[in-house]
Amino acid sequence: MRSIWKGAISFGLVTIPVKLYSATEQRDVRFHQVHREDGGRIKYKRTCTVDGEEIPYSDIAKGYELPSGDMVILTDEDFAELPLTSSRRIDVLQFVEAAEVDPIYFAKSYYLEPDAQGAKPYVLLRDALENSGQVAIVKIAIRQRESLATLRVRQGVFVLETMLWPDEVRTPDFPFLDEDIEVRKQELSMATSLIESMEGEFDPSEYKDAYREALQAVIDAKVEGREVARPAEEAEEEPAADLLSALRASVEAAKKSRGDKDGKAGSGKDDAEKKPASRKTSSKSGQKKEPAQKKESTRSRTRKSA
């Protein structure tokens, strides 16, 4: 991995030099715009809408358009004068319970690696934070954008997750929220049963991006020059007569699916349990013969003494 930012964690009077790395990556299949006839790449020229001239990067600035249509032009000097106090620091603001931070605020995740000189204070803060069960609320500036973030521990490494500002999270405003929708007790009970029947431990490796795999298969087929087999369309299920019937059918299907899995696992256990039972029987039969041998030896000694 290549670091994208260097700075320091500022924790009270303690400064911990660190490097920032992207913790995630997109695995989307990427395409280029090309000419359909010959596959040539499509290029765009940077032209000015006023004079029609092609503009080099050195002459391009950022502009903020006003409601009137007028443009406010900002230069690099304007951005350089902005007060980014945390430009090279990760300022620890406070510590909170992880459950207090709504996941909707999270934007992107990064790993933090300590410099050689900062390894000990890094480990000290890491262990203290992990023992507390809390997360740190911090402030950081990346690429001229200041963000709130959380700092937590994952697999022995600090994970910094940038957050959206409160005014960047939309408030849900949907008509059904104002409607008086009645849910019957029986329906709620059946829905709860469905949830319970589908409970399990989350294992991300059990899931896959079916669309990406299918798209990659199409590309591979194009490369190999063979026909692409289209999967058969799934039969559409008929909608249930009412909500309660749909919930009941879903619960039964979930129980049947789980029962099939348990049955397969249980058959192996039964076979394993039967084998030790046969061994126990043979060992018991051996134990019964031992007293008989002892009696015979006792009788022989008695005869000799007589």
Rank of each mutant, 00 (worst) to 15 (best):
G259R: 10
P276T: 04
K256M: 05
K280I: 08
R248H: 12
D260P: 02
E238P: 00
T281W: 04
K280R: 14
S257L: 10
K255R: 12
D262G: 00
S245C: 02
A272G: 08
A253F: 02
V251M: 04
K274P: 03
A254I: 02
A272R: 11
A241P: 02
K261M: 10
K255P: 01
A253N: 01
S245P: 00
K280A: 14
A241V: 15
G266S: 15
A240M: 01
S250W: 01
D260L: 10
P276C: 09
K275I: 11
P239V: 04
S282Q: 03
A240F: 05
K269M: 06
P276H: 09
S278D: 13
K264L: 14
E252F: 11
E273C: 04
K261C: 01
S250T: 02
S267M: 10
S283G: 01
P276N: 05
L247F: 10
S278I: 09
S245H: 05
S267A: 15
D262F: 04
L244Q: 04
K255M: 12
K275E: 12
G268A: 12
S283T: 02
A272E: 13
A254C: 02
A265E: 15
G263E: 07
G263D: 05
D260I: 03
A265P: 08
K264N: 07
A249N: 14
S250R: 11
D270P: 01
K261A: 09
D270W: 14
S245L: 08
A241F: 03
A265G: 09
R279M: 07
S267H: 07
K269I: 15
R279H: 10
L244G: 01
A254S: 09
A253E: 07
A246N: 10
G266Q: 12
D270I: 14
S245W: 00
A277K: 02
V251P: 01
A254R: 01
A246P: 03
S250H: 04
D260F: 06
R248T: 15
S267P: 01
L244I: 02
K256L: 08
E252P: 03
G266P: 00
P239N: 02
S283Q: 07
K256W: 00
A277F: 11
K269D: 08
V251A: 13
L247A: 06
E273K: 15
K261G: 00
G266D: 08
E238N: 09
S282C: 00
K256S: 11
D242I: 06
E252I: 08
R279S: 10
S282K: 12
K269Y: 07
P239I: 07
D242P: 03
L244D: 04
K274F: 07
A246E: 06
K264P: 00
S250D: 11
A265C: 05
D271T: 11
G259N: 13
A265V: 08
A272I: 06
L244V: 01
K275Q: 13
D270V: 15
R258V: 07
K275S: 10
K256F: 03
D271H: 05
G268Q: 12
A265M: 10
S257I: 03
S282N: 05
P239H: 01
L243K: 06
A254K: 03
A253M: 04
S257E: 15
R258Y: 00
R279L: 14
K280L: 11
S245Y: 00
D262E: 15
